[in-house]
Amino acid sequence: MGVSLLVQITSIYYPVLAAVGVPVNLVTIVILSRGKCGLSKCITRYLLGMATADLMVLIIDVIIRSIVGMYFPLSFFTITPVCSVNWAMTMAATTMSVWFTVGFTFDRFVAICCQKLKTKYCTERMAGVVIVTVILLSCLINIPWYFTFESVYITDNQPRGCTWTPSFLTSPSWTSFELLTFTVTPCLPFVLFLLVNSLTARYIIVSGRVRRLLRGRNSGENGKDPEMDSRRKSIILLFSISGSFIALWSTLVVYILAERILGAEFIADSDLPTISLMLQVLSTCTNTCIYVLTQRMFREELKNVVKYPVNCIVKLIISLKH
C-alpha cells in the first residue's frame, strides 16, 4: 500500500516550515530587540515573547518531534524519556505562544478602551510580570504530560517511541487533565479573542463617531485626527494578529469539540487532526508577515538587517581586491 497523499505533503511541509520559520523568527527577535520599530516598550515585550515562543515551538515540535521523528526513527530523540520530555516542552511552548498573544490582545484592549487603567496596566513592568507568570504557569501545567507515555518497543535495552499509557486512555483523572489543558489552550483563548476584539471594535466605532462629531462642532475641521490615526495603526496590528490566530487555530478547536461531542471513533479515519496541527504550527510564522505588512518602521529595520550581511560581503570583496 502506497504512502497517502497527506503523509507525502507533511513530509515536505514541515521541513519547508522550519526552513522559513526559524530564520524569520530569529530576524524578528533581533529587530524587536533593537527597539527601533516605533513601538512602545510594553508592546515590544509582548511581541518579543510571542516570537521567542514561536521559535521554541518550531524547534521542539516541528524540527525535533516531527522532522527528526519522521526521518530519523532511531535518533536520540526517539528514546522514550526524551520523547516524553519533548512532548511536555512542546505543550508548554505552545501554551506560552498562545497566552502571550492573549496578553498582548488584552493589553491593547486596555490601552484603547480603558483610559483610566491604561497608565497603570500598559507598562513595561506589567508586561514583564505577565510574561513571567505565563512562562511559570505554562511549564507547571504541562509537567504531567511527561507521565502519560510509555515505550513502543525496546532496542539495545533502550525504550523507544512514545505511546499513550493505558491509564491515560482510561483514567477519569487523566481525562479531566486532558480536558483542562485543552480548555486552557486553545479553547479559552479562542473565546477571549472573540470577546475582547468585539468589545474593542464596538468601542472604536462608538468613540470614532463621537470624536468626529466633537471635532466638527468645535473647530469645523475635516482633516486628519492624529489620535484616531495612532489608534487605527494599533488596531490593525491587534486585529491582524488575533485574526490570524483565530483563522489558523479554528480547525483545531473544531477537531477538539468534535472529538468530545461525537467521540474519537467518529473522526478516527479523518484527516482533520493532521490538517489542524499543520495549520496550528503555521501560526508560528505569520506574525512576522503581519509586522511587515502593517508596520512601516519594521519594514525599514528588516531591510537594514537584510542589507547588513550583503554590505559586509561587498566590503570584504573590495578589500580583498585592493
Rank of each mutant, 00 (worst) to 15 (best):
G223L: 05
L48V: 02
I60D: 05
T44D: 04
F168V: 13
E178Y: 12
F182D: 11
C139P: 04
S75T: 06
I205T: 14
G38P: 01
T44N: 06
P189V: 09
S97W: 00
Q8V: 07
S234W: 00
E265A: 13
Q115W: 10
T148I: 10
T10N: 12
I267D: 02
N197L: 05
S219H: 10
R212M: 15
Y255V: 14
P144T: 11
S4M: 10
D107Y: 04
E221F: 11
V134K: 00
I31L: 06
L248F: 15
V85C: 11
Y71C: 11
K41V: 06
T105Y: 03
Q295T: 06
L195C: 13
Q280H: 08
R215H: 10
L248S: 07
L180A: 15
T165I: 04
T251A: 15
R299E: 02
Y308T: 14
E259H: 08
L32C: 03
L39D: 00
L179A: 15
M96K: 02
M91A: 12
V184E: 06
L257K: 08
F76I: 13
Y14W: 13
A53L: 01
T170G: 06
C162R: 01
I60C: 04
L137A: 14
L180G: 10
R125M: 11
T170R: 13
N157I: 03
Q115D: 15
L169N: 12
N222S: 09
R260W: 12
F298P: 00
I63G: 01
T183F: 09
S250H: 09
T200R: 05
G49V: 03
S276K: 02
I131T: 00
